[in-house]
Design a binder for these strands. Structure first.
Length: 848
DNA sequence: AGCACGCCGACT
DNA sequence: GTCGGCGTGCTC
């Protein structure tokens, strides 16, 4: 075996195994290639991470062979391999799981067990078998070979019971079990096409042969006419006939497939196939737009970014800190245009595409035909096509949610992370990566420029502009673009709207028990009178927060979660209502009497968006109210319909949850009211102050985006909290100074890194036992290795202690910054050994 | 002695 | 992740 090559292949579950590469695959089996390999009795996918000549120690055991390449398109470039290994190390995920993020959508496949009845099985007497085995055998007799997944869908019983039954049947010789591949989930979409196959000079002869076939002649005539028309318009005919999708011919000429086939037999037509793209933006028809002039502040930021882009010495990270409405998007657009002129591709990450449709449309308008959109809302086929357009370099701009950071961009030069502070950038399953941090790492690998954009940057990012080498670009003023009397665009600075804090304790003392303070009622009245729009913001869906018995204090809770149930009105029949668990979706009837003490004095407390709507309708019967939350948005286009309704002035008051806080450009809003500004402020999470400040600043920023005179009201029970006071002044720096002092004092990010370990089990006692055991092991290790400054919080039940019947306990490991490199964290966790049943979250975004 | 169950380590 | 080996502990 001197000619042999050995491939190191990364497989599921942290396996890194060596396989021989057979002769026929030598040329194709490169590093980064997705391959099929044998693993015990299975056939599984893996990624080649190294190719090397054989070494003496290989011969100690017989190496098995790489079976085949999976999709040859599924090759991860070297930059991708570097990125994947960084993700695997930083977030402590198996390498293969990180590599999978970089594969084309839909290629990851597993061979699945398939069962078939044997000849003996077909003849066997069903009555002799236990019921479950009887059902399985009967089904397979009547339906032939079935996959385990298909069987699971039609048969009753738990997976393990079914498994036992299959094994028993196979042992009895009544079934066979084979590992087979399910059909690949995606492939390029193709359409059938037709093209004339007649040389130009023979057209007349050809037509005469069709004298007795009028329908066929009609088709040929139609196609000829179209090409003639085209030739006239384009001044000259290049001799190539147009290739038509068959559908176009069917609709235009009313012909059929049979007729086209007859024409092909006469060699007058050529029927073919071509790949077509599934276009997620199809039907959105956006007119190309004209870039507005930049303000001096925008111009300064633009110049700094472009300079970095042109130098391309190393990665450069910029924080573009611009108040809401200061024109950050226009800067992105300009810098992207420049990157494209330099032959580079750009990547734009946005928090959530559904809520950012407006932004995507602006990009599509500026760069028609050059965009690829990537997010989880796309069909897998659409995603696959977009992926391929980027990989081939056809699309020059990728825009998408967090997973788009792994898109194939061979010419990457610029990355934009819009609203970089958004928690949605953190992935919450598999490798728990933070897309913003991955983007920065990707920039280091590809020497790209990164723009982190936000009106309310995360504390970590802002601190990095002071001590971490990020460049800070600031836009302190709103752009109020307006058309001057000379018909030209003028940029006028707009003031940020004044914010009033209303102390709700005071309101109660003054005898106002309404959910609206006096000030908010007045403001709503005058805004409605002026025919302007208002937004009322409340971070809770439903009607009321919970239902409680006034006599014994019983609170209706979810049977499988630790949440109280929330009261919801039924949207179809407003008089009826039910209780819903916001964690698991369980729905229950509203109790008439307390199930605990049988008192009838059981009623709802607190407010939700539905109650706010009800209240507005009660106080202002003439107002048109629109509710925008997860319950009122239906379907794929729900968000944009909602937005259009409001933008077209078909509603006066918009009541919504945080969905409406995020980056929407609502030009006519003159009043923003926050019903309860302190929701979430007192959560046991080190980011609760930051969250509250960000949310309030963003919500306040929805007001007065085109004209002065707008106002904002925060209703609160904590009017002295620094997060509220800073949001009131729209003053990020004031907030930052206080927040950073608190973080420094407690050693929280950015002064330390956190690793959160979560254990989930069906019983709290198991959680406690396991959490306590791991905690003492960690304490021992910290002491033993003399890791000064390392500390452990917990073991303790998580804030959301119980969810869907599962209990959760957690530990939080806090590591002081200079020592907190990913390698030392990984090293420490390795010492702990395998953490079975634990979820490890490095750099958690929230710890609830 | 015979068997169920759960833990542990290997998988190339 | 999944499988098989092996030890523990319970039952016949």
């Amino acid at each position: 075996m001197p000619n042999d090559t050995i491939a190191e292949v990364a497989l599921r579950a942290s396996l890194l195994l060596s396989y021989r590469v057979p002769e026929r695959l030598h040329r194709l089996a490169r590093v980064g290639q997705l391959v099929w390999v044998p693993l015990r009795r299975e056939r599984v996918q893996g990624v080649i991470v190294a190719v090397r000549p054989p070494q003496p120690h290989d011969s100690r055991h017989e190496l098995r062979e790489v079976l085949d390449l999976a999709d040859p398109e599924a090759t991860i470039p070297s930059s991708g391999l570097q990125l994947a290994s960084w993700v695997a190390q930083t977030y402590r995920a198996p390498l293969y799981d990180a590599l999978e993020l970089l594969l084309p959508p839909g290629v990851g496949q597993e061979a699945e067990a398939h069962y078939r009845a044997t000849a003996a099985g077909i003849q066997a007497t069903l009555g002799d078998l236990p019921p479950r085995e009887r059902a399985i055998l009967y089904y397979l007799r009547t339906h032939g070979t079935q996959s385990e997944r298909d069987l699971r869908a039609v048969l009753r019983g738990s997976d393990s019971d079914l498994r036992d039954a299959y094994i028993a049947l196979v042992e009895r010789g009544l079934l066979t079990r084979d590992m087979m591949l399910s059909a690949p989930r995606v492939r390029p979409r193709t359409e059938r096409t037709v093209r004339l196959a007649i040389p130009v000079e023979e057209v007349d002869t050809a037509l005469t042969t069709l004298a007795r076939a009028p329908k066929q002649a009609q088709v040929i005539h139609w196609m000829l006419e179209q090409d003639l028309a085209r030739a006239n318009m384009e001044e000259g005919f290049d001799g190539a006939w147009t290739t038509w999708p068959v559908d176009a011919i069917y609709t235009a000429t009313g012909t059929t497939a049979t007729l086209l086939r007859q024409l092909e037999e006469r060699d007058l037509l050529k029927i073919g196939q071509r790949e077509v793209r599934r276009d997620p933006l199809a039907g959105d028809g956006v007119p190309p737009d004209v870039p507005p002039p930049l303000t001096p502040a925008q111009q300064r930021a633009y110049t700094a970014l472009v300079t970095a882009l042109e130098e391309r010495q190393a990665a450069d990270v910029f924080l573009l800190h611009g108040v809401t409405g200061s024109g950050k998007t226009e800067i992105y657009l300009r810098v992207i245009a420049r990157a494209m002129r330099l032959g580079r591709q750009a990547l734009v990450l946005v928090p959530e595409i559904a809520l950012t449709a407006q932004l995507v449309r602006r990009f599509a308008a500026r760069f028609p035909g050059k965009i690829a959109v990537l997010h989880s809302g796309l069909g897998i086929g659409e995603r696959y096509d977009e992926w391929r357009r980027l990989r081939r370099g056809e699309a020059r701009l990728a825009i998408g949610s967090r997973s788009a950071v792994f898109a194939p961009l061979p010419d990457l030069g610029l990355i934009v992370v819009d609203e970089e502070h958004e928690p949605t950038y953190k992935h919450d399953a598999g490798p728990r990566y933070h897309a913003r941090d991955v983007a920065i790492q990707l920039a280091h690998i590809t020497k790209s420029v990164v723009i982190l954009g936000s009106a309310t940057p995360s504390v970590e990012t802002y601190q990095a502009t002071r001590t971490g080498g990020y460049h800070l670009l600031e836009l302190d003023e709103r752009v109020g673009g307006s058309l001057g009397p000379d018909g030209l665009h003028h940029s006028v600075a707009l003031p940020l709207p004044p914010v009033r804090l209303v102390d709700m304790r005071q309101e109660l003392q003054n005898g106002n028990r309404s959910i609206f303070s006096h000030a908010l009622q007045l403001a709503l009245t005058s805004t409605l009178e002026r025919k302007e729009q208002s937004i009322l913001f409340l971070n809770r869906r439903g009607a009321a927060s919970f239902v409680m018995c006034r006599d014994c204090g019983y609170v209706a809770g979810c049977g499988s979660c630790s949440n109280p149930l929330t009261l919801h009105y039924d949207d179809q029949s407003p008089t009826s209502s039910s209780l819903i668990c916001h964690a698991c979706g369980r729905r229950e009837a509203v109790p008439r009497i307390c199930p605990h003490c049988l008192s009838p004095r059981i009623k709802d407390f607190g407010v939700g968006t539905q109650r706010v709507v009800e209240e507005v309708q009660h106080l202002f019967p003439q107002a048109r109210v629109l509710r925008w939350d997860r319950d009122s948005v239906r379907g794929k286009h729900g968000h944009s319909q909602m937005l259009d309704t409001f933008l077209q002035g078909q509603a006066d008051v918009l009541v919504g949850t945080q969905m409406i806080a995020k980056g929407l450009d609502l030009p006519l809003v003159a009043l923003v009211g926050v019903i309860a500004a302190d929701t979430g402020l007192h959560m046991p999470d080190f980011r609760s102050g930051e969250r509250t400040f960000q949310l309030l600043t963003q919500v306040a920023g929805r007001a007065g985006r085109r004209s002065a005179g707008a106002q904002v009201i925060f209703q609160t029970y904590s009017p002295d909290h620094y997060a509220l006071l800073a949001a009131q002044e729209h003053d990020y720096r004031v907030f930052f100074r206080q927040e950073i002092a608190y973080r420094r004092e407690l050693g929280y990010p950015p002064f330390g890194r956190l690793v959160r370990l979560i254990y989930t089990a069906s019983k709290p006692s198991i959680c406690k036992r396991e959490a306590t055991a791991v905690a003492s092991k960690i304490e021992e290790l910290i002491e033993e290795r003399d890791l000064s400054g390392w500390s452990l919080i917990g073991p303790a039940p998580a804030f959301f202690q119980r969810s869907r019947g599962q209990w959760r306990w957690h530990l939080i490991l806090r590591i002081p910054m200079p020592q907190a490199e990913s390698s030392s964290i990984a090293g420490f966790l390795d010492l702990l050994g395998p953490l079975h049943g634990w979820t490890v979250d490095v750099d958690p975004v929230q710890v609830l």
